[in-house]
Amino acid sequence: MLSKIRGVKGAVIVLLILALLAFVFSSIFNSTSSRKGSIKKPKSQVEKATEFTKEGELHILSTENDTVVSIDIELATDQYEIARGMMFRREMGDLEGMLFIMPTEQIQSFWMKNCYLSLDMIFADSKGIIGSAQTYTEPYSMKSLPSEKPSKYVLETKAGFWDKHQIKPGYKMVFNAL
């Protein structure tokens, strides 16, 4: 009788081990085949949230009201969008940006947590007048990057935008949402 119980217990253990091995091999096979492209995975929430979506246009005007540069923008207007910002973005076009519309005009401060790209941050007051910028920011940095003057708007662009377009304090941002 005892040998029968051992035999049944042994058989159960062997079956459990075989089932576990089948699961492991099936998981390995599925992940390998999806990497080869035979199975297309749906985009994750992070991937969807990191794609550029044109929500408006922004023009930077010189002190003589000449257009210096025009870009497509995404808007960050609520607490979630402002907190998330450009985190997890892996690419950005030369004429794309994110415009943060802050709830109040005050000294604004940003950091680069979870930001893969170096950015230029351009700060403007409630009239759109540019007061200062933080350029060539360091990706992943937790260092505070404040505006020099109270700001209502913050435009984030690819690093080098400020220099390339020779933007200066006193220039003006004008934007329209789609």
Rank of each mutant, 00 (worst) to 15 (best):
K172Y: 04
L2V: 12
W162Y: 15
I5W: 11
K152N: 06
K40V: 13
I60G: 02
T135I: 14
S144D: 10
N114G: 06
E74L: 06
E148L: 11
T32M: 02
D125S: 06
Y116A: 07
M86N: 08
S3I: 11
R90M: 09
M92I: 13
R35P: 00
D78N: 09
P42R: 07
F88L: 03
S31A: 04
M86T: 06
T67I: 14
K9H: 14
Y136A: 13
G170L: 04
C115D: 04
R84H: 09
T32Y: 07
G93L: 01
S132L: 03
A19L: 14
S70K: 12
G56C: 08
S141Q: 07
M173V: 03
M87H: 01
F25C: 12
S34R: 04
E57M: 04
K172R: 10
F161W: 05
K168V: 09
S126C: 04
Q79L: 06
P146I: 08
V174E: 14
W162L: 12
V68W: 05
D94G: 09
K158D: 05
A11Q: 10
V69T: 08
F123L: 03
D78R: 01
L18H: 01
N65K: 14
F25N: 06
A11M: 14
T137S: 15
R90C: 00
I107A: 10
L95P: 08
W111P: 00
E148I: 07
Y116F: 15
L117F: 07
D163E: 15
N176R: 15
I13W: 11
L20C: 12
I5K: 10
M112N: 05
A11K: 11
M98A: 01
A159C: 01
P150V: 07
D72Y: 08
E138P: 05
S151K: 12
Y80C: 00
I28M: 00
S147D: 07
T104N: 13
K40Y: 07
K4L: 04
K158A: 06
I17W: 13
K158L: 14
S132I: 09
A83R: 09
P146N: 07
T104A: 08
A124D: 06
S26D: 09
D163A: 13
D72E: 11
F100G: 08
N114I: 00
T77F: 02
L15N: 06
I73P: 03
L21K: 03
E47F: 11
G97A: 11
L178K: 15
V69R: 07
I5D: 08
S26A: 12
P139T: 05
M92V: 07
F123Q: 03
L178E: 13
L99V: 01
K143Y: 12
N176H: 15
S109I: 01
K168C: 10
S118N: 05
E96I: 01
C115I: 13
M87A: 04
E91N: 10
M112T: 06
S34T: 04
E55R: 05
Y171P: 02
G131C: 11
V46I: 14
V8C: 02
E138I: 15
G131D: 12
S147H: 00
E156A: 10
V12K: 11
V8R: 13
N176V: 14
K41F: 15
I5H: 11
S144P: 03
H165M: 03
S62C: 03
V46M: 02
K36T: 01
V69L: 04
E156L: 10
F52A: 12
F52H: 12
I101C: 05
T137M: 12
P150Q: 10
D78P: 00
P103K: 00
K152H: 13
V24N: 11
M173T: 02
